[in-house]
Design a protein around this nucleic acid. Structure first.
Lengths: 228, 228
DNA sequence: CGGCTTGTTGATTTCGCTCAATGGTGGTGG
DNA sequence: CCACCACCATTGAGCGAAATCAACAAGCCG
């Protein structure tokens, strides 16, 4: 949150270059910087707040009654998300250092939508994108084995983000993946190393995954019917 | 889909009596009847289709690569849902016989939203309700044990629907519950009977559950620290 | 009646959680 | 600089929970 307007301009240009539809929203954006683990406050009045990730990653978490953390949503660059002051949505945190968000006060958004029907439609689109993200995660969590979950997760990451297809940059720790997939950290590790040994994926560094055999990930991979 | 306009009027009155916010939408509604298992078609043009459940229940399913069915969404009376012609959303089916829906063509909705900013806002509201439904299901699926999942499912059903609190009418079969929670049918059965034996719930018929000890459901119920 | 769906229970096996230990890395302060 | 600490990642051993396989009762309908 330092005073560096030149940096703000830089991120503003990134925001404008992104492919989402809300171009007319850009001038309203407030560029916000967050540290790793820092909470994005939801004290934003009754109309809530819209955000768009420019750089970094953001997670939406709840704490279960048994103390476990669950990650309900994972937002990457170009993703929009809405925060209301209702407690049930859980806490929102920056995942990585130097996470940059565009922030739009809900009241301002409502004003714009009221005047501009086309913008209102785009705003609906964005809401439906959040829904699609959530249902995508449902499909991932619906897998039986941990291999399925991890595999689906990698595929979904490959679909998002701007990296070239087949090369996934994991934006989060193994612990985050575990809480996102509702499995233990150890299981995530084992699944990754096993997929690696089977030649389905290859690791370039701990946080970079190359997808070698995409078909094996898309089909059920509990089978060993894919060893070359 | 029989020609019974008097019945259509009956359901139209039910629709009007429901507490959702889209009153000005009611005159546009087409009342549709569906049989058990019948698919709700999504051949509705590029603008998609909005529906609202009046009577019965509707599920959104996908088939996984291993042949298992997964239920991604469960719509009960007063729930809205959107159907587009994109294949990835899966198929939509009526769960029970004599399921009655209000149907709104997407193009018509867009027209209305364009003219009426207040309506556009309400439309955003229902989109966010779909999102809330989806995220609620995420929380349920995030549970570790099958007891947790079944318990959370019962609680979420208790929150929806118009029955009095504490008495849940299961609108779906055990198989549907299993595919919704991503566990096996047998596990669902065992969880239900176990919860019954522990005095947490009581069954009045196969499809009616009384919640006896709500606290035991809300807390973690893997513990036996609740037997009276 | 015979077939079909639904619901339930038992036996066995497999998978993933838990506990435990270890190495690597980045930051921080003596 | 190095000792120390916190976090991250990985691997092994043992156990419990849930999937799987199998069987069976009850209701429903042609």
């Amino acid at each position: 949150m330092k005073a560096r307007s030149h940096a703000a301009d830089y991120y503003r240009r990134i925001l404008s270059a992104q492919s989402h539809g809300l171009k007319r929203l850009d001038p309203v954006a407030a560029i916000m910087h967050y540290h790793r683990g820092q909470e994005i406050p939801n004290s934003s009045g009754p109309a809530g707040h819209w955000y768009c990730v420019i750089v970094g990653a953001v997670r939406r978490c709840t704490i279960r009654s048994d103390g476990r953390r669950q990650i309900l949503d994972l937002m990457l660059p170009q993703d929009f998300f809405f925060v209301s002051d209702s407690k049930r949505d859980g806490t929102i945190e920056a995942v990585v250092e130097e996470t940059v968000l565009a922030s739009y006060p809900g009241a301002r958004i409502e004003q714009l939508a009221e005047r501009d029907p086309l913008f209102a439609r785009e705003l609906r689109e964005v809401a439906l994108q959040s829904l699609a993200r959530s249902q995508g995660q449902l499909q991932i969590l619906g897998g039986i084995t941990a291999f399925e979950k991890v595999g689906s997760f990698l595929l979904s990451l490959d679909g998002r983000g701007s990296e070239k297809r087949g090369e996934v940059e994991l934006p989060v720790s193994r612990y985050d993946i575990a809480d996102y997939l509702a499995v233990s950290v150890e299981t995530v590790c084992r699944a990754i190393t096993d997929l690696q040994h089977r030649g389905v994926i290859a690791l370039a560094g701990k946080r970079t995954v190359k997808i070698v055999n995409r078909g094996a990930l898309e089909d059920r991979f509990g089978e060993r019917a894919m060893v070359a």
